[in-house]
Design a protein around this nucleic acid. Sequence first.
DNA 1: ATTCGTTGTGTAATCGATTACAGGGACAGT
DNA 2: ACTGTCCCTGTAATCGATTACACAACGAAT
Lengths: 339, 339
Amino acid sequence: MVKMSDVAKRANVSTATVSRVLSKEGYVSEETRNKVLKAIDVLGYTPNRLASNFRKSSSHTVLAIIPDITNPFFSEVVKGLEKVAAERGYHVLLGDTGNSLNVERDLMELVREQLADGVILATARVTNEEIEKLGRELPLVVACEYFDGISIPTVSIDNVVAAREATQYLIDCGHRRIALISGRFNIVLNRDRIRGYRQALEYSGLPVQESLIQEGDWTMESGMNAMSRILAMDQLPTAVFAASDEMAVGALKSLKAKGLRVPNDMSVMGFDDISLSEMVEPELSTVRQPKRELGELAIRMLLNIVEGKKLERTQVILPHRLMIRGSTAPPSPPHGGGR
Amino acid sequence: MVKMSDVAKRANVSTATVSRVLSKEGYVSEETRNKVLKAIDVLGYTPNRLASNFRKSSSHTVLAIIPDITNPFFSEVVKGLEKVAAERGYHVLLGDTGNSLNVERDLMELVREQLADGVILATARVTNEEIEKLGRELPLVVACEYFDGISIPTVSIDNVVAAREATQYLIDCGHRRIALISGRFNIVLNRDRIRGYRQALEYSGLPVQESLIQEGDWTMESGMNAMSRILAMDQLPTAVFAASDEMAVGALKSLKAKGLRVPNDMSVMGFDDISLSEMVEPELSTVRQPKRELGELAIRMLLNIVEGKKLERTQVILPHRLMIRGSTAPPSPPHGGGR
DNA sequence: ATTCGTTGTGTAATCGATTACAGGGACAGT
DNA sequence: ACTGTCCCTGTAATCGATTACACAACGAAT
């Protein structure tokens, strides 16, 4: 490997000068610069970034910790991260935890080892306190998840409001019995969505029936199962709100299997607005999260921290949007009913 | 930051000894080892991987170059990569080219700069010759794409055979006019699929009608458009084979919009078997690619090259599988027809 | 003429871990 | 007693780029 000293020798200058040419810092005469550039070209020199990073003790790399890269929601977030990172000359190390807490903890070590300058945490199995602690020790931004009263920089949507609006929309359509297919009860983000659902019902004076809240785990299968449980009830709801699009699609499948039509017999509302939601039939009404922007903003904040700049705001809430498509409609009047 | 020399001082040994304890190489007495471990613990020492990587001139990192992380096919491949990399103590740098040839070239530089020990190339906009050249200069494995007669290690499926079998299946169902929604004509992988389609028709003595081959660009929209063009023809086919699942779903949508039923009025076959294919209605018959295995094997090969081991085989073809689901069936007899 | 700021370049220390090499002690075999 | 092998440990060079510091040349300002 040809190194900087080889270039220096060839150009009859010192390595300091070569370094100055490369970094564009400090004074170098036009003439010397050309000599150096020529030598670099002739020798085919490529700087050794390992040496440079070591000396500058910065890897110019950030670590993206996500639960599962095959989840379209997260892959969109990562896409946003990657784009901005590249623009600012940083690289992204992929940390797919496969939902494992231990892997998550291990990955954080990479920052301590200086392999990454900072971390985007898009999953949060660790506790509130642990995150606070980590955030004090290393540059860290939490994306997508939101923790109440946390002091760590965070970017997310307002899950409570989003879920409330989605539920409210169904109520406004005329639905009075609305089921909820929720994610895991122990996830904060999911609890926020449940909260929003409850709030909407309460504001409208509708009863919250606990049996209408069925737990899933974000997957399509769990959505199917949850829907089946709901369909086995005596008094059916006229609408279902699922806390993820995958689960909503599962609900769709379950409904079709039982011969029920959407939205005629049952309205279905999803959450996230992944591309899938426009591919199913009928197209899914859902809550759009600005996935890419979530990633972009998270990494912008992180890089600002890394580079020692001040953040204007540490808790950023991005706007969501209701996407009304074909899977929701007013409830059909009961057979032989109407007024 | 506490460094190795601090640990050495505290434990009353040399840095060489500390290094030996950490690397588990060379002789260290049990007693000394404990002293060192204790000092490490007391001081809260974390090795500086930047220094270590520099000295060993290895980053223990591989670069995954993919066209688009939000494409579910590639995110599965990456998942496989990541898993095996982690198992073997490597990290994965994400290189999302956004389909740009220049970005692809820039990314390769990272290996020259020693930021990555090797590259998995899961997209190939660069030419055959360029890849050959790169492959001679740095550890490189091509995943998913296949180049005829290339000397670079490659892992992929046999796209020709896979497409032939899919088409053959449709023929065996009784279809005689089969349309093809292809990807971009200039992509090798796609040309292989077209070739397989042609072969199947020819083997069965069926005519290849060029107008039945419509170009798309892998996206759902392009699939819809291609299907619309096909449906505007005088003599309709009874089946369509799309070179990607997204395009097949687009075809599905286009058919539904025109009021045609699948598979009764038209059979639809996809390619890839991404999770989407089980979420649409009817579920998509498709060709399964072993996505995760593709990634796993590619990185295994790469790491073997990086670590100087010999590869048993440099060109690996993984098995594909026809997944027959609800979107394909024998053609309906023509109205008033049948014998 | 002196001082000062700007420009241009070189010398050499430095970042922190790894490792080649040397050396010493213990022990076995002859 | 001598030689050879293990063990165990330390000294110091090394990886390649960056950068603090020194210095020199030049022109402008006083």
